[in-house]
Design a protein around this nucleic acid. Sequence first.
DNA 1: TATTGTTATACTCTATAACTATA
DNA 2: TATAGTTATAGAGTATAACAATA
Lengths: 154, 154
Amino acid sequence: MQASSSTETEALAEALSRDLATFTNRLLQAGHRDLFAAIEKAGLTITQVKCLKVLCEADGALYLGAISDELGLSLPALSRAVENLVRRGHVKREEDPRDRRSKLVTVTSRGRATYEQLTALRLVGIKNFVAGLEPAEQEALAAAVGPVVRRLEP
Amino acid sequence: MQASSSTETEALAEALSRDLATFTNRLLQAGHRDLFAAIEKAGLTITQVKCLKVLCEADGALYLGAISDELGLSLPALSRAVENLVRRGHVKREEDPRDRRSKLVTVTSRGRATYEQLTALRLVGIKNFVAGLEPAEQEALAAAVGPVVRRLEP
DNA sequence: TATTGTTATACTCTATAACTATA
DNA sequence: TATAGTTATAGAGTATAACAATA
């Protein structure tokens, strides 16, 4: 295999980037409608779902301030979002015994179940997209994407 | 090469779908912040950008109703979005001479330029992601994604 | 006095309903 | 009478400012 020149490398990266932009557009459209419908049916907002995501991916309890930082939202906005999640039983909010100004937020099993249902629904959309690809295309994608995902997110 | 069994094929599709979900998450995060900052700086909302997108990808003028259908928004919401785009010179809105109840909306060169700047900015984020990949990973992705994009969107 | 979170207020975006103009 | 779009009004979500409780 020949070494590529710098300009060739750049051109490849440029073309690949454009293709990836188109590709992700397609992938996002898949099942978008169903997912939004399910979120609305669950009485949740996008912000509340993002909040659940952060909490599900965390190992334990998080402070309100930590969540608002993570999501780039104001503390009042997050406080209200959590308030709704508490009312619906998706999270619990408790005083930190070591600093009673702070509140610790934790996902409940119900909240985790809801989040996993939504994640599964998104996956359905992607699976439908994948099912529309030819076997050779699927194999090439798996061979290309798998290693990248494994390397970046272990 | 051996033919795969049905269950093997399904397992491949399942694993690939999961990887694609993770992969697109990464790709979307790249440059997300900068893009939103630029949209805000331009005095636009997400809805208005989507509106520009629809108009830029259309060949000519579109009726207000057609745009609201396309975006799944109410006519009043779209009417206000277009109103702002008109004020900022991104689109022009004219009576349809053949049915004076209807309004025809067209992107101006300024609106097109703005949309292209935003698209370019999104591409910058993706390019940064691609630049963080190894050459072999880039080549494998290009070989896998390119044909799919070409087949689905000519 | 500083910090964590909540409540008060104002603003934006959206949808439904009422309205105008044209067909 | 029906249709395309606008204006009126109300509801949800956010941010800034003011506040309460704790450190």
